[in-house]
Structures are given as structure tokens and as C-alpha cells.
Write a protein that binds this DNA or RNA. Structure first.
Lengths: 215, 215
DNA sequence: TGCAAAACTGCAACCAGTGAAAAGAAACAA
DNA sequence: TTGTTTCTTTTCACTGGTTGCAGTTTTGCA
């Protein structure tokens, strides 16, 4: 089944077997084919039958790799969340809450920037897709929300005595909520990556120093 | 069509015509019937056919009142957003950004608390429903996100010289993001309304005074 | 080579959602 | 009241995502 991102090795040996390699190839074919089709003819206009045919599997098989049509687009979400949570889990000595949160944000951006995972260079296409398709936007927000919950729990776990669970949630929610909304607004006009970057930074500064520093 | 919440009057006279009254009754029947069915047999297990039958209309007619199955549950969203945006629009003289945001939050809570709109007393049922059904949760997040965008624009409009559009977005996103996530975490255990209220307050204080005041 | 597990296929069924044409009901004018 | 116009609902047919199931193929391994 495609539910595990990390390859399950055949045995104690390090080499993935034929079965695993085939599965990875099919998975990648589904992802790349789907994104290409979404780009060419639009998300709604692309049917699962076409996606499956593109990867030379049956429609039914699609669903043993992804739980839904939307999910192909978010193939790397689990991985990204894992990195964030892991980053929180290995708290540096003497690190402050804010320091840790910034480290998480930075790592996440780095990861996003250097994406090679699945020979996949159309990150921009994906962003455009998610921004324009309501169904994908809803799914993205749901996944992001879920990630925030996980991160809040991890943060509470990293500072068990200093932060209550609800305070940890408030912190994560405020930081990511601020960044998310300001980036979204900024994307309504065409902007360069650098612009977006600095807007995100600015939003995190606002969250950290507090809204009272504004008007 | 059911797209307008406010009744379109027949003429210059104040009385809504028969047509309008019937539509309101049908709308209410759909809402109440749907929520009752969702409660009794679960959201996924309830079909549109059943909902429509409960209100004695055809399945097709359901879709001239609501755009989707999910949307019945969020029948009052437009109204709530309108209040929030209107509250922002009539900025008080000498009001600060933070002061205004707090006023919006308070008004919104008031409105939620005093809900009588459609002889509808099962607000709690609805909350439980949204919290447990993934499809509804995704829709809720999408609607909330959209509301935040509108509020951010309104805020920028209210303080055009003091707040850039992206800063306004950062403010709204941080405040609502913090409240949302902490309330959500708090709801994982059973809590009283008062508890939730004070947790929300605490989250807004954190966002206002800044994350740096934490760890 | 043979067996068990894993993966894939085809098929049937369900249900949300949409388009179009026809029927029904209400509003309006004469 | 009657005829006309406009809005609403119904009926019907159809698409497409999603799932369960039963059977077949492929792979891993002894």
C-alpha cells in the first residue's frame, strides 16, 4: 500500500526489492502525470481515469496509492510535517520558544526551496493550482491545520513546564496564521520569491513582537 | 434563488410575498431536517435524497438552496462575516488597531452566543458535527480563511495609512490563528463554555503582547 | 518449483452534483 | 377573472469520484 512514504525494505539488507521499486515508479508516474494533466486541462476537467491511464494502471489502483484525487497534489505533506515535528523534538539547550519556532520555519522554507524529492521541478505550478482550485485550497487548509495541531503538541512536549498545551497552540497558531494570511494576500499580486520571503519574515516579526506594536 | 440571505421584497411595500415566505420555510426545513438527520444517523450516512425528502422537495431543488451538502451546516456564515466586516468598517475615532480587533472578536462571540436566527437551538450539535466530520472541518477552515481575507482587507481599509495590506493580514491571521488553534486544542478535552472563553481570551492576549513574552 | 503475501484488475454499486426541458405556482396587468 | 410573464420546482439523464468484492497476476522466499 502507498500509505508509507518511507520505503519498506525487504529485509535487513539496505536494497529495496523489485516490488518496492515498481511501487515507487508507479507512484511517481501518478504524481507527475496528474500534475501535468491538471496543468494542461485543469483540475476539474481531468478525470481519474485519465490519470490512471497515464500511469498505466487501473482506476481502482489509483486509490491504493492516494486516498483521493486531491491527495496526489499533496504527496509530500507527511514528510514535511515529520521534519517540522522532528525539528521541534530535538530542542537545543537554552533555546527559547521563539528561537525554536523560527528554526522550524526556516528549516521548512529550506526544505521547500531545495525540493528534489521526486524529480519534480514544478513547485510553482503546484502553488498556482492550490491557490486557484477551491477543492485543493480546502484540502490544503485542512492539512495545514492538522500540521499546526501536531506542531503545537510537539512544542508543548518540548517545553512541558514553561508552556501549557493551549499556550503552545496559541503560539503556533499565531505565528503560522500570521504568515499564512499575509503571504496569501501578497500573492494576489504577482510577486517575486524574494518579496514573498520578506513578507513572511515581516509577518513572523509582527507575531513575535506582538500586534500592539502596530497601529 | 436561495443565494441571498436577506429577503427580497416584492415591491416597495415591506411585506414579503407568498413566494418569499415559502422559500424561507423550505430553507428552514432543509436546515433543520438535515441537522437532525446528521445527528441521528451521521453525516456521511445521510444522503441528499433523505434530506430533500424530509423537507418535501426534490433532490434537485436542494441545490438551488445550497451549493453542496456541506453548506447546509454553514447556513449563517455569510451573515457572520458581514457583521465582522461592518464592525471594522465603522472605525471609532481614535481607535487603535488592537482595540478594533478586540471589538470585532467580542461582537462575533456575542452574536454566536445569542443565536436565535432560525429557531435553532442546537448550536452545540453543530459544533460537534464540524469538529468530528473531516469534510465539514475542511469546509469550515476554508470559510474561516476566506473570512480572514475579507477582514484583513477591511482592516487595511480602516487604517489605510498606518497598515499595509500585508501587515493587516499578518495581524488578522495571527490573532484569529492563535485563537482558533488554542480553542481547538482545548476542545480535545471536554470543557465548559467559560473555559473556552477564557482560553480564547488568553490566546488573544498572547497574540497582542507577542510570542516573545512566552518562554 | 511451489506457496503465501502483496498488488492489481474489472465490475457493480452508491452518491453528490449538473444540465436541460417541461410542468407548476405566484405575480402582475388588463 | 383571465391571460401573460416570471420564478421555482420537478423529472430525467448523465458524469465522475469513491468503495467493496472477488478473482488474477506478480513478487518474495523457501
Amino acid at each position: 500500500m502507498g500509505s508509507e512514504t518511507v520505503a519498506a525494505e525487504t529485509e535487513a539488507s539496505g536494497a529495496p526489492g523489485l516490488r518496492e521499486r515498481k511501487k515507487q515508479r508507479t507512484r511517481q508516474a501518478l504524481i507527475e502525470g496528474a500534475l501535468r494533466l491538471f496543468d494542461e486541462k485543469g483540475y476539474e476537467e481531468t478525470t481519474l481515469a485519465e490519470i490512471a491511464a497515464g500511469a498505466e494502471v487501473s482506476t481502482r489502483t489509483f486509490f491504493s496509492y492516494f486516498a483521493s484525487k486531491e491527495d496526489v497534489v499533496f504527496f509530500d505533506t507527511k514528510e514535511r510535517l515529520q521534519l517540522a515535528v522532528a525539528t521541534i523534538a530535538d530542542r537545543q539547550p537554552d533555546e527559547t520558544v521563539v528561537g525554536m519556532l523560527l528554526r522550524v520555519i526556516n528549516k521548512s522554507f529550506e526544505q521547500a526551496a531545495s525540493y528534489q524529492d521526486i524529480t519534480f521541478d514544478n513547485a510553482a505550478l503546484r502553488v498556482r493550482l492550490i491557490l486557484t482550485e477551491p477543492a485543493l485550497q480546502a484540502r490544503a487548509l485542512h492539512l495545514l491545520f492538522d500540521s499546526q495541531l501536531h506542531m503545537a503538541r510537539a512544542l508543548h512536549g518540548a517545553f512541558p513546564d514553561r508552556l501549557s498545551d493551549t499556550d503552545a497552540a496559541a503560539a503556533v497558531g499565531a505565528l503560522i496564521g500570521g504568515i499564512k494570511l499575509s503571504v496569501m494576500v501578497s500573492l494576489e499580486e504577482e510577486r517575486s520569491i524574494e518579496d514573498v520571503w520578506s513578507i513572511a519574515r515581516r509577518a513572523s516579526e509582527i507575531a513575535i513582537s506582538g500586534l500592539h506594536t502596530l497601529g
